[in-house]
């Protein structure tokens, strides 16, 4: 079984982003970038399925400029077999990303697509669902457990009320939640090996997909900051503040 894992290059999750003074966006100059944490979990899950003898090949794909090759190499070091970069300088919406991924699915014919539930920059949480819609596949979003057997995949999903398990006919799309697994670190020998694994580059505009977005960002502002509060001396003081000053308890 072939598994396709779409991965995104995003700001490192430890970085506190700053909004540009002209409110045109956030400042990404000289900021540490990384593989989106949910994509890392997706790669790990695919590698575990390969180690379990269920998957035979793992293909990772990323859409973006040359810099995304760094994250593709990371994914290869974690155990993916080959990588595809769809090259573009444009910042795409989830819909355009999903349309391009649908073309990759058509070419590669994977049995399973595993991807992140959310990119921690846009916080969109859309692409997996959109890809599933465009390819007519079933979707197992926010997965905390994935079991593949006999042409089906059972996905346990983290939902607002607890957990839900669905069964999907393969091929299917799975999106990862935090509890699915704990990703490994790439070992030095694997990082070296990853440099020799195949990485194909194709122009994103060669797929016949209109890449322009219908959604325009008018401004990006910093959120209202909270006033620094006070440290109190004891519980009695806290209770009286909550009652008499904040009036949030009675």
């Amino acid at each position: 079984m072939k598994i396709l894992v779409p991965v995104k290059r995003v700001i490192d999750y430890n970085v506190k982003v700053r909004v540009k003074p002209d409110n045109s966006g956030v400042d990404l100059a000289n900021v540490k970038m990384a593989l989106n944490p949910f994509c890392e979990i997706a790669v790990e899950e695919a590698v575990r399925l390969k180690e379990a003898g269920i998957a035979t090949e793992i293909v990772v794909v990323s859409i973006g400029n040359k810099l995304v090759q760094e994250q593709l190499r990371t994914a290869l070091a974690l155990g993916a077999d080959r990588a595809i970069q769809l090259d573009t300088e444009l910042t795409l919406d989830s819909l355009q990303v999903a349309k391009l991924l649908a073309k990759v699915v058509a070419n590669e014919q994977p049995q399973l697509v595993i991807m992140g539930k959310q990119a921690i920059d846009s916080d969109n949480n859309q692409t997996a669902q959109m890809l599933a819609a465009l390819t007519g596949m079933g979707q197992g979003t926010f997965a905390s457990k994935v079991v593949v057997a006999e042409g089906k995949v059972q996905v346990t999903r983290e939902i607002d009320g607890g957990l839900q398990t669905v069964e999907l006919t393969l091929p299917a799309v799975v999106s990862t939640d935090l509890r699915l697994n704990e990703p490994r670190y790439a070992s030095l020998p694997n990082i070296m090996k990853a440099k020799k694994k195949p990485l194909d580059v194709t122009a994103a505009d060669s797929f016949g997909v209109a890449l322009e977005s219908k959604v325009q960002t008018l401004s990006v502002k910093a959120p209202e900051s909270r006033k620094a509060g006070v440290v109190l001396s004891d519980v009695a003081e806290l209770v009286s503040k909550l009652k008499d000053e904040a009036k949030v308890i009675s």
Binding site: K16, V26, D121, Q216, T217, L218, V220, K221, A222, P223
Partner: peptide, 11 residues
Amino acid sequence: VYAGNAIATVQ
């Protein structure tokens, strides 16, 4: 966006 560290207005 960005975990609430930026607030975007989009059209």
